[in-house]
Design a protein around this nucleic acid. Structure first.
Ligand SMILES: [Mn+2]
Ligand SMILES: [Mn+2]
Ligand SMILES: [Zn+2]
Ligand SMILES: [Zn+2]
Lengths: 162, 162
DNA sequence: AATAATAACGATAATCATTATCAGTAAGAG
DNA sequence: CTCTTACTGATAATGATTATCGTTATTATT
């Protein structure tokens, strides 16, 4: 657990950007959670220790970090974008199971070795055939989670607030 | 090119639903295009031949058709949901290339045989391990399309209106 | 150090896709 | 024909995201 790449802010300064407190705090927040947080989730979490932060800043910062490749943006179909820390290429890469009843998101890394091999091939071939320079991919499975298969968990939910 | 499953509306009546003109027309519209249309796209296309249709009806109908499994809903990150006709299981199944510069969506079906085999395996294993009953999946590759790699096509666009 | 240039912030208003409401209409059952 | 209920279209409301703007903080320049 050594300091992540951005810790000294070099990545920012390199582009004439500043590594400000809001940016640091938002990165830290995403660093500390395994969940998939919305802008408002993040805003609320930060609010305790940094009440003066503005929601607009959270949105702006998430957009920036996303474009810098430090975080990933997802849409799981619950009406807002959700974010997680980007892992280094192929280190801890994972995909998602999305419950269409309760909205729960499950990360999985199983089979990623095999997936990765296939996806690499596909990427290479698609790049060639469609002249498309591929940066990233997302694989989502949609279905019904364990709890929702039984009667439980009927609340279509503001889940994902761990 | 024989009539699709819903043509007689049996699928609807079976559930106490009615196969009304708006529903028919919206299905036809999606049937006629290979693109990925937004609610408003559909609304505008229909407007010529059926000016009295309401935008709310379009949204309502898309939601319904989506839940019935007749159409698929996607979010490619351009601020609105997009829809396409659902194909029968494994017939013409395809995945997507998304250009992060201009928003162009490219369907591809290459490698789907191999993908399908792997995805089947993964589905089976995930179902077992996470007790997740999988219904569908989406695989999106994000990158830069041919046109955007060169200087062209600088307009980050209301693309996809073919 | 003082000044100038500019990046970033927070508050707030504006935008815009999607949903909810509601009164009216049309289809089907008996 | 009459009742019941599904469905529609117009319109208002919602809610996530974005734009605006005046202020503050950081860096570069004199
Ligand atoms: Mn994840
Ligand atoms: Mn498609
Ligand atoms: Zn669930
Ligand atoms: Zn492009």
């Amino acid at each position: 657990m050594q300091g992540p790449i951005w810790l000294e802010g070099g990545l920012f300064r390199k582009q004439g950007l500043r590594f400000t407190l809001p940016r640091r705090v938002i990165l830290d927040t995403l660093c500390k959670t395994k969940g998939h947080l919305s802008a408002e989730d993040i805003y609320l979490r930060i609010h305790d220790s940094y009440p003066q932060i503005g929601l607009a800043t959270v949105y702006r910062t998430l957009e920036l970090l996303s474009k810098m490749g430090l975080i990933c943006k997802f849409d799981f179909g619950d009406g807002c974008s959700r974010y997680e820390l980007a892992r280094a290429r192929d280190e801890e890469h994972h995909h998602h199971l999305v419950c269409i009843k309760c909205g729960k998101i499950t990360d999985y890394s199983d089979f990623v070795e095999e997936e990765t091999r296939l996806i690499r091939e596909i990427e290479k071939a698609l790049s060639r055939k469609y002249d498309f320079q591929i940066n990233s991919h997302q694989l989502h499975f949609y279905g019904v989670c364990k709890d929702c298969q039984q009667g439980n968990n009927s609340h279509r939910a503001k889940q994902e607030r761990r």
